[in-house]
Every structure is written in C-alpha cells, then in structure tokens.
Simulated assay, not measured.
Amino acid sequence: MKIKKSWVKNSLGYDNDLFIYQDKNMFNYSVDTILLANLATLSKKTKDVLEIGVNNAALSIFLSQRSDLLHIDAIEIQKEACDLANFNINMNHLEKRINVINDDFNEWWKKHTKNVGKKYDLIVCNPPFYRKETKIKKNISDAMLKATHEITLNLEDIIKGSSKIIEQKGFLALIIPPERLVDCFVLLKKYSFEPKRVIMIHPRQYQKAILTFVEARFQTGWGVHFEPNIYLHPNDPSKHEYLEEVVKLYQPQKLK
C-alpha cells in the first residue's frame, strides 16, 4: 500500500521499536491512548481482546506488546482508518495477532452474537468524548468528527454492545472525560457491569482532571476503588515534560 502525503511517521511510546503512521486529517494518538493500553488489567488468562474504534491501531499495537498471549480484534467503521490501521499493523509485523474488522460496531455485535462468536476477556475503547449536540468546531474533517463526537457511536452503544460479547467477569476499560463519569457509571450498572477501578488524570496537581480511566467487570460483585491520581506534568507551568511515572507508562508494561 502506498504511503499518502497526509501520513506522518511517529514513534509509538518511548524507547521501543514501535512506529506508526498517522493521518493529519484524522484522530492522532495521545497520552490517553497510552494510558488506556497500560492501565487495562491483564492476567495470564487474558487472551481474546476487542478494541472498539481502532483508528490508526496505535492502542492495539501498543497493548499487544504487554503480553504475547493476546489476540486482538479491532473494529472500526471508517474504511480509510482501517487501511491505515492495517498498514501500521503490517509495518510492526503484528498481522498474526491483530485483526482489523471494518464494520459498524452496533451492527457487528448483533451478527457476532447471532453467530455465537467468541466472548472477549477484555474490551478496550477510547470512545468519542463529545455528545452529538456539542458545538462542533469549524474546519473539522468528517473522520475527526466521527472519532471525537457521538455521531455513529455513543457511550451507551459501547457499553450495551460490550455486555453481549464479553465473558462473565471480563474487563471493560475506557478513557472518558471526567464530565461523563456519572453517565458512565449509570450505563455500566444498567448493563450489568460493576465499576471497579477509577483513576483521575490531571495535567498538574493544582489543575482539575482532564481524563478519567474507568475499568469495569461484567456480572461480578459490587465495589469501586478510586486509585491514586496520575499527574502528567511538573507543577511549574513553564515545564511541559512528562513526570517520571508518566514516562514509564510510555513503555508497554509487560505482563509478569
């Protein structure tokens, strides 16, 4: 496949051999992608994983490096994103471990269930952050719009569909804005998920959280744990480097 002019090659994380091409007109990976990949719970029993909304495959590629046991299905509605994802997967020699599915998740999970498809041990998703009615910025591409706003997929769609294709006590890991936390909890409970881990992510100690990691389990006992906050940068506003604990998370945390 020919490299497009809008594609830019970037390293994926720090101090490793992972690289991806990103399209300047589409959603590009950021710290939320890395945190979701590294904070999601893995064990030696975790084998079948689903990523909802693969985009350029940054999350699936990074996650795959945490354990050689993982086989990842990655579903994406946008054909151009799937082409880019497959290019990146092949470039990193992961085509035997990551399978891209070009389909609408809302339709796919129904077909998957009807055909008695496999159940997933872990489902990860960096969902569209903004509600459909949120004011849309000018000059935003259609691809970016679908990746960031609830145009083709919303939070309830993700949680409802996940409940149909996940193993009992399987994990659902999400990164959402703090403003959506209550919505998330309500929807998780509605579809038999129990929120288990919550981590607030702040730019600096004195600034409000900008992201929230939420991990839930399907059909399991109650009890949520708010783990220590993650602070991305030093308190000095003139310093923009990541703190040491965040730098460590930019390397795949291997399953031991």
Rank of each mutant, 00 (worst) to 15 (best):
F87L: 15
N88V: 08
N88L: 09
H93F: 12
E95W: 01
E95D: 12
E95I: 06
K96Q: 15
K96N: 14
I98V: 00
V100K: 08
V100H: 06
V100S: 08
I101S: 04
I101W: 04
I101T: 11
N102Q: 10
D103N: 15
D104G: 02
D104K: 03
D104Y: 03
D104H: 01
F105A: 00
N106W: 01
W108P: 09
W108G: 05
W109F: 14
W109S: 02
K110I: 15
K110E: 11
K111V: 02
K111N: 06
H112Y: 08
H112Q: 08
H112M: 05
K114M: 03
V116A: 12
V116C: 09
V116K: 12
G117S: 02
G117I: 03
G117F: 02
K119M: 13
D121W: 00
D121P: 01
L122G: 06
I123T: 04
I123L: 07
I123R: 00
C125I: 05
C125H: 05
N126G: 00
N126K: 05
N126T: 03
P127W: 03
P128N: 07
F129W: 15
K132A: 14
K132N: 14
E133F: 11
E133Q: 14
T134A: 13
K135F: 02
I136F: 07
K138A: 08
K138Y: 02
K138F: 03
N139L: 09
N139E: 12
N139Q: 08
N139D: 15
I140W: 08
I140M: 15
S141K: 06
D142H: 10
A143Q: 08
L145K: 15
L145W: 04
K146I: 15
T148K: 15
T148M: 13
H149D: 12
H149I: 07
I151P: 04
I151A: 07
I151Y: 10
T152Y: 08
L153P: 00
N154S: 09
N154G: 12
L155G: 07
L155K: 10
L155H: 11
E156S: 13
E156W: 13
D157Y: 09
D157M: 04
K160F: 14
K160P: 01
G161A: 11
G161W: 10
S162A: 13
S163I: 10
S163G: 11
S163N: 12
K164S: 14
K164Y: 14
I165K: 10
I165V: 15
I166T: 14
I166Y: 08
E167D: 11
K169T: 13
G170Q: 11
G170T: 09
L172N: 06
A173F: 10
L174T: 10
L174F: 13
I175Q: 04
P177K: 05
P178F: 09
E179R: 14
R180Q: 14
L181H: 08
L181I: 13
L181W: 09
C184M: 02
F185S: 11
L187W: 01
L188W: 06
K189F: 12
K189M: 05
Y191Q: 01
S192F: 13
F193K: 05
E194P: 02
K196F: 04
K196M: 08
R197T: 11
R197I: 14
R197V: 11
V198Q: 14
V198N: 11
I199P: 02
M200S: 09
I201Q: 07
R204F: 06
Q205G: 15
Y206S: 14
Q207W: 03
K208S: 11
A209D: 10
A209L: 10
A209Q: 11
L211N: 04
L211C: 06
